[in-house]
């Protein structure tokens, strides 16, 4: 059995910061979605796409909740999170108001590492934030052309607008994109089964397939897939990557206690050379090689 990589050297020390962070903004969107902005300078400076922070939600529920980082401003020191109320912890978090403080512990975990020229980013529901974070990091790389496909079965937490960035292979009418990504010059398209205007009516993976089919073999060889979202979506994304023989990284979530690798509470089964290893989502992940988890 392979084991989690219990830290042997000391380079991991002092990489996670705990701060009582002021809530700068806390906006609510349809479908019990919330965008939370906190002032957490060290976390903002060190955050990388795919990482998360462990947030205290309320005195009544003192266990922290792991929430993906959507955006971080190293200059202004704020960090944005998008979450959906899923249980008692996130319900209590949603009641916290601007001006209050919450304890923010982060950034935590292994980030995405992008090597390809045409990264395909797929985010579903509350799996969108790491993709937005990754897109923001990639916008600074001139020779990289990412495509972001976002899917949701509840209204998107932004007003979509027709994209000016043309894409090969998109079915007629699939023109809606995320304005923030559009502003960064990054192409995006939306998918939903709910018939939202401008969105592809179907699964994110089916829309991705349209795009992949329109690429030449050479172009396709430059694609790497990055995904975060519900488990059935991630499974479908990994199957798609397998079909097209593309590398794929997925960001996972699991009930979590310590978030620093101490308790081994948040494990996922990962295929390793010596069989299956139970690896910790918090510090061995949350980003894993998709082909090893599904």
């Amino acid at each position: 059995m392979a084991s989690p990589s219990y830290s042997a050297n000391k380079s991991h020390r002092n990489t996670i910061f705990v701060v009582d962070a002021e809530i700068l903004r806390h906006e609510v969107y349809p479908g019990h979605q919330h965008i939370l902005r906190v002032q957490a300078e060290d976390c903002a400076r060190q955050a990388r796409p795919g990482q998360f922070a462990h947030l205290t939600v309320d005195r009544q529920r003192p266990m922290r909740r792991p929430i993906s980082i959507m955006r971080a401003s190293p200059d202004q020191g704020w960090v944005d999170f998008l979450y959906k109320v899923a249980g008692e912890g996130t319900r209590l978090l949603s009641q916290r108001k601007a001006g209050e403080t919450i304890s923010v512990m982060g950034p935590i975990g292994k980030p995405f590492t992008v090597k390809e020229k045409k990264p395909l980013l797929i985010g579903g529901g509350v799996g969108m934030p790491p993709m937005i974070c990754l897109a923001e990091a990639l916008r600074r790389q001139v020779d990289v052309q990412p495509l972001v496909i976002l899917g949701s079965e509840i209204p998107f937490p932004f007003d979509s607008k027709p994209s000016q960035l043309m894409l090969q292979g998109m079915p007629d009418g699939v023109i809606g994109g995320m304005p923030l990504l559009e502003d960064w010059g990054i192409a995006s398209r939306l998918a939903s089964l709910q018939g939202y205007p401008g969105c592809y009516e179907g699964y994110v993976t089916d829309l991705a397939k349209h795009w992949l089919e329109a690429l030449s073999a050479d172009q396709r060889a430059q694609v790497g897939v990055y995904a975060c979202g519900p488990e059935p979506m991630l499974r479908a994304v990994v199957n798609l990557a397998r079909e097209y023989q593309l590398p794929v990284q997925v960001s996972l979530e699991e009930f979590m206690a310590c978030a620093v690798g101490g308790c081994a509470g948040c494990v996922v089964a990962v295929k390793a050379e010596q069989g299956v290893a139970m690896q910790r989502v918090c510090v061995d992940g949350p980003v894993f090689d998709g082909l090893r988890v599904y």
């Binding site: 830290s7 042997a8 002092n14 060290d42 310590c258 620093v260 690798g261 101490g262 081994a264």
Partner: peptide, 15 residues
Amino acid sequence: SGCVGFGEEYTRIEG
């Protein structure tokens, strides 16, 4: 035991 791995995990945290 069981909360702090093998003694090095919590040292990730500054402070």
